[in-house]
Amino acid sequence: MKGILFAVAAGMFITLQGVANSRIGAAIGTWQAAALTQLTGFIAALLLLGLFRRSAGTGLRGVKPLYLTGGAMGAVIVFSNVQAIHAVGITIAAAVLLIAQLSLTFLIDGRGWFGVVKQTMSLPQFLGIAMMIAGVLILRV
């Protein structure tokens, strides 16, 4: 249940962030918006880290370097997304992005790549993903 609540909240934050970013981007520019919002987010996260952290170390040394690149991907995501919206419009761009994201996640989960606990994917899972993709297409195209 806790996981569901977090995931639902994550989705809501993503939508609100999308609305905010497009407004801010229109006012000061896409890159400015991306840099500014992530800088203030970073500062807020540091403050929260100071409040909540339990141990002295960060544990960062135990992390595979590859996994640390996740944060930097944000900039490439912003760039590709902006260019794509420019080329094919927001509707198609958003739908294709969601479907690609879902498909790769499904693949990684099913194959157990990147040390993810491998999940057995059988008919209901394939059907669920297919419905999800159909839903995205109905909603967005």
């Binding site: 991907m73 590709s80 997304n81 794509a84 198609i92 294709v96 690609a100 879902l102 790769l104």
Partner: peptide, 18 residues
Amino acid sequence: GISLSILAGCLLSLQNIF
């Protein structure tokens, strides 16, 4: 445009997992 959207979606997926 489509390729860039696919790229962005795949990177988002990797980002969440990483």
